[in-house]
Design a protein around this nucleic acid. Structure first.
Lengths: 343, 343
DNA sequence: CGTTATCATGATAGCGCTATCAGCAAAGCA
DNA sequence: TGCTTTGCTGATAGCGCTATCATGATAACG
């Protein structure tokens, strides 16, 4: 009797004004408020102003969760990367974000820590949020994840590398990049070239580059020694790697590093060891980070167009979301060998 | 007559299985499925297994949007930073994400591009997604934004700097950091010290450090010339700034840079110009990025505990979300002067 | 002038989940 | 034995919005 069942009791949540309240304040129906906010052109100017006034006056903040449920659309773009410690992914994220935010999409950022099971969980979560599209760094997923991606009926963009993608693909050929650098070092006359990378099983793109490296050096009759670091690391790790490479392979005259951080760390450390670069030891990297171009000697590296990659990826996805066909499902952004003085 | 009104027509969206469908498959009610997934301990093991089986079999992916609407809770943490181009923010984001993801929260990343109106829009959007808490980099907001933050009844954490926060605050005193470095340079005997920064109106924390710098140098009877770059930039900009500072203030014997990127760019460029550091020109930075510690001479800088800042911030927010009281509403993480050989 | 298009707005019915309150069996207690 | 407590499950009623269809008013047309 005293349980006012009919009274719309405030169950939970805050006393934030709702669309309903705004409608009352503006003397229109809720749906008109919705239209005034989301499809302004469908509402007569005078009505619209009345609504916007009420919105302002009440401090109404639309509940996007409710809107998303009702329309089964959200303006989320899921972006999944293996790590935030690597500047390369940051740059791609940045350029994705620039492009997507401009179109009113919100990035949902996920970090797998190079763990495919974690990636699967992230994809589930993001699909649960009705994201509009997914962008993942890389082509390697576990079985369940690939299945989910293939069947989710949303644009799926795989960036960074080129290959057998689920849907859309923008990237470069890492194996070819490895070949390219190996060829360059051969041409420069280096004979004992060590490849240095970290956790090649997880950073498998560095592994692909090593494969390319071997594909060039082996036919040329050269050894292809590998120094694999057990953990990721930046400049510091590069310094250590230099010492390890020189100790383990005494005749080494060039080192092909898996990335610019390692390479630059090694280059700076070589100074401290009194080694001349490239006379005593040549050094090459991968990525083309600005850092490498500001040291002396400048780092020989391969420039990957990360900015372009992110932008193109975002543009393809947007095109799909807008119902326009994609121009190309697979897009090779290429790379550029930057021959510095370190080799 | 032929409009089967009663048939639950598939209005929109996909044919993804729903909780309802899973319930049918498992022979229980929907609410039991919900509990089996979200509060497993409330469901008998046998029932739970039956449910989980059905989930697996149907490939059910929970609709988090619906769940969030019903519970008016999401597991989103809004993180708002002014830029992704700056490594400092990246590191804070990274450490926030590490801590929050571990507790099952999802980061909603927003980038203001140093625009307070954009920040306001982001806050509105994030509140619309019923985020559980907001973390913003910095204390400066526009009127509307501050009002929204103050009245949203969610934990609001402002990181990076210390001061008059809306709610929670973890950071360091930038003005004091500026003073500290200025004192250091004075003690080392430098007499003509230029401060170099970029866009100090937007990067106002660098402006605060300049204020501290002046507070120390002016009473000591020194000039406090400023070189302000019109755009943000990394190493490249630092190189240019060095030349500008030397050209505009010929007697300069030390440069206090607003950050390590600029400082390191200048330091590397000094080599190329044939200037000795610190004999011809001393160089100091701010942040304590690894980079600065790997060049020769090592960069004198101020180490800001960014990792700690992010972690502490996340922990305070989590404590609040778990209903435990925060230990401290304002937390000074301090900083450390790292005296390298560049000064 | 009747007929059809177009415009502006509204009524209704969910979107897929969870909060809340109920119910009922088994267990604990005096 | 009757009573309360605990454990497990279910029925009901929304969360705050938008899709869909309907309506009345005005404009366009021959």
């Amino acid at each position: 009797m005293s349980k006012h069942r009919d009274a719309p009791r405030q169950r939970r949540g805050s006393a934030q004004p709702t669309l309903q309240r705004v409608a009352e304040a503006a003397g229109v129906s809720p749906i008109t408020v919705s239209r005034a906010l989301n499809n302004p052109e469908q509402v007569k100017e005078e009505t619209r102003n009345r609504v916007l006034d009420a919105v302002e006056r009440l401090g109404y903040v639309p509940n996007l969760v409710a809107g998303s449920l009702a329309s089964s659309r959200s303006r989320f773009i899921a972006v999944i990367v293996p790590s935030l410690a690597n500047a390369v992914f940051i740059e791609v994220i940045k350029s994705l974000q620039d492009t997507f935010e401009q179109q009113g999409y919100q990035i949902l950022l996920g970090n797998t820590d190079y763990d495919t099971d974690r990636e699967y969980q992230l994809v589930r979560t993001f699909l649960g949020w009705s994201c509009s599209a997914l962008v993942t760094a890389g082509l390697r997923h576990n079985e369940a994840c690939r299945h989910l991606l293939a069947n989710c009926e949303k644009p799926v963009m795989e960036v960074m590398e080129l290959g057998d993608a689920v849907d859309l693909n923008v990237g470069l050929d890492h194996r070819e990049a490895g070949r390219c650098m190996a060829r360059h070092l051969l041409e420069r006359g280096y004979r004992s070239i060590v490849y240095v990378g970290a956790c090649l099983d997880r950073d498998y793109r560095a592994g692909l580059r090593y494969s390319g490296h071997r594909e060039v050096l082996e036919p040329a009759g050269r050894d292809t020694p590998l120094v694999e670091l057990p953990t990721f690391g930046g400049l510091e790790a590069g310094a250590g790697a230099l010492e390890r490479a020189l100790a383990e392979y005494p005749g080494t005259d060039a080192i092909h590093f898996a990335n610019d951080d390692l390479a630059t760390g090694a280059l700076l450390h070589a100074h401290r060891l009194g080694k001349r670069v490239p006379e005593d030891i040549a050094i090459a990297g991968f990525n083309g980070l600005p850092l490498g171009q500001h040291v002396t000697p400048r780092l020989t590296t391969i420039l990957s167009p990360r900015e372009t990659m992110g932008r193109l990826a975002a543009e393809q996805v947007l095109r799909r979301l807008e119902g326009k066909g994609v121009t190309r499902r697979r897009q090779d952004v290429g790379f550029t060998l930057v021959a510095g003085e370190s080799s």
